[in-house]
Design a protein around this nucleic acid. Sequence first.
DNA 1: ATACCTGCAAAGGTTTTGCACATAC
DNA 2: GTATGTGCAAAACCTTTGCAGGTAT
Lengths: 139, 139
Amino acid sequence: MENLTALFKEKNLKLTPQRYAIYKYLKSTKSHPSAEMIYEALKPDFPTMSLATVYKTVNTLIELGLVQELNVGEDNFRFDANVENHPHIVCTKCGRVDDIEDAVFEHLNKEVENYTSYKVSTHKLYFYGVCPKCQKELQ
Amino acid sequence: MENLTALFKEKNLKLTPQRYAIYKYLKSTKSHPSAEMIYEALKPDFPTMSLATVYKTVNTLIELGLVQELNVGEDNFRFDANVENHPHIVCTKCGRVDDIEDAVFEHLNKEVENYTSYKVSTHKLYFYGVCPKCQKELQ
DNA sequence: ATACCTGCAAAGGTTTTGCACATAC
DNA sequence: GTATGTGCAAAACCTTTGCAGGTAT
């Protein structure tokens, strides 16, 4: 987080309050918010901030390698400040999106190369199921 | 394919020429076309068909379980009439999307349950790399 | 001081919807 | 004959862009 100042300076980017707040919010949450959700979450503290600024900022953060983009099958993108390659899981009842922590599937890239002629470099893995809370409510 | 008539009848849906052509086209191709690509591909034979009909039809086909939707990280969806759960691979150079055939990763669902409290039912796996043709062109 | 950034509004792209006409059954 | 589907245009989304004014450095 302290490296932010240095990184932004290096790229001749300005570390504005909006950019700082958006990154801090993404770092603080595991909810994988969409642009709209970020915008709503920061509205109390940044009532004049526009949705366009959210979009511009997340794109800047992606270019800097500080944030990654997800698409779990919705009509919009979600964002994650955990840039380690990790799988996600989506609740098919309530729609929440969680990280699958400590599960590393990097070896799948090599496995896939046995089935294709592609040189495989990365992957995005999305699992779908019912979260603990929704399991309880279904009983 | 012959079951189409029966399935549509059962659901009180009409098997129109447009619907038949869209499904046949999706069955015939491995290119994972978007709605726009389907629309363009069928334009020679169905010059009066509208893009709205393509969207309505693919949604009908999805509800029938005849087609699945993909999002490889583009701003639109692609469609696949191979409804077996299979991984996809995207060329990061040319954007083509291929099936990864014969690679079954159903066991990952159970593996993931060791890392979460979700009941896992399905998954979508997207791999990214460079396709054979683009590998040659890079040399 | 100045290059970069924000906020607004407009535009662009994808997908959905409403409705009159058409058509599969 | 009638319920369902098509095609068109408009609308509803999500996201990007252009630009004038603002701000971090």
